[in-house]
């Protein structure tokens, strides 16, 4: 498929999903109310304006931001580690970011400044990606990578369990548990403003690595002979993943498997050059999270099914198939 056709198709899907995310919700609104509410002047007291501007718009915008961050980070990590199973959730970046956010939230650090929460998420993700790189980075063995990711995820999980254990009340413990499941419900424009800029900065860093990733797919020596500074590219990738995934997790909780599924679905369309996969994965990630977030609003349940639960339910079987296919190829 031509690149332009792919971009056009992805943009159309994502655009449609964005419009649908604004149109779907718990209060039935007519088209006139949706449009009127969305474009009503600031401070308009109509309930349609409040619903569209204060509830649905931030939710849809965060769907785009979080989804694009996860899809792009997945594609970048798969290129960096030359491994099709790399994903922010599987390698421990999401759980370390969650842990840091839980600590910041429940031990009162977020009361100091609203910037603490995204900063904590980014620090957690950075620590995870850096540790992973030290543990399993260069040789790119599937086994070492997955095991290092499992170790990091378990460690973060143990410390999160400790936080739940030491939470000041049963209610706080319940809140942590729910928050960890990942959700975009009832977020505000403040969340968009706090987490948006670091995510955009992360995207810029990741998208600047396209040529380096293409070269790296030919092997480190070839990449070096092509004049690519590998250490600089790696630093940009690690920082980019930390910024975008860390900020995303700090507003939404952990939403798994998006970074795994999206690059895989799109790889056949772009050929096997990791650099060309980056931008499509970002757009595709946005579409997937928007669609999943529409899904959780349509499932009838006493408690809204959490977004992270839905993506995990869809993503885990996908991961299993992928593992089996990888084993067959290797065996």
């Amino acid at each position: 498929m031509k690149a332009t056709a792919l971009y056009a198709a992805l943009a159309a899907i994502t655009g449609a999903a964005f419009v649908a995310a604004l149109a779907v919700g718990y209060a039935p609104l007519g088209i006139a109310e949706i449009v009127g509410g969305l474009f009503a002047g600031a401070g308009s007291p109509s309930s349609a304006a409040i619903i569209m501007q204060d509830i649905r718009l931030p939710r849809a915008l965060l769907g785009v931001l979080v989804g694009a961050s996860l899809g792009l980070s997945g594609a970048a990590l798969q290129g960096l580690l030359r491994n099709p199973l790399a994903e922010p959730g599987l390698i421990g970046a999401s759980s370390m970011a969650s842990l840091a956010a839980v600590i910041a939230f429940y031990f009162g650090f977020t009361a100091l400044s609203p910037f603490i929460l995204p900063l904590a998420g980014m620090a957690g993700a950075l620590l995870a990606v850096a540790l992973l790189y030290v543990l399993a980075g260069r040789e790119g063995s599937v086994l070492t990578l997955i095991l290092a990711g499992v170790a990091l995820t378990s460690f973060a999980g143990a410390l999160t369990a400790l936080a739940i254990n030491l939470a000041s009340s049963a209610y706080a413990a319940l809140e942590i548990t729910f928050w960890l499941l990942g959700s975009l419900s009832d977020r505000t424009m403040t969340h968009v403003m706090l987490a948006g800029p670091p995510m955009l900065l992360g995207w810029a860093l990741l998208l600047s690595c396209g040529r380096a990733l293409d070269a790296l797919s030919l092997g480190e020596d070839t990449a070096r002979s092509l004049g690519i500074s590998l250490s600089a590219a790696r630093l940009r990738l690690v920082l980019g993943v930390a910024l975008s995934v860390g900020a995303a997790v700090s507003v939404s909780g952990a939403i798994g498997f998006v970074g795994l599924v999206v690059p895989h679905l799109l790889r056949p369309f772009v050929g096997h050059e990791p650099g060309r996969l980056l931008l499509p994965s970002a757009i595709g990630g946005a579409a997937l999270v928007l669609l999943a977030d529409i899904g959780v609003r349509l499932i009838p349940a006493l408690v809204e099914v959490k977004l992270g639960v839905l993506t995990a339910l869809l993503g885990a079987p996908f991961f299993l198939v992928l593992v089996l296919r990888t084993r067959r190829r290797m065996g």
Binding site: Y26, A27, Y171, A172, D186
Partner: peptide
């Protein structure tokens, strides 16, 4: 859901959870 609350506009919303202690 918050959207339905906005639609119904109750005169009073009661926060039955209190706001003491740790941020939540």
């Amino acid at each position: 859901p918050l959207e339905r609350l906005v639609r119904q506009r109750p005169a009073l919303v009661v926060n039955w959870m209190g706001d003491e202690g740790t941020p939540s």
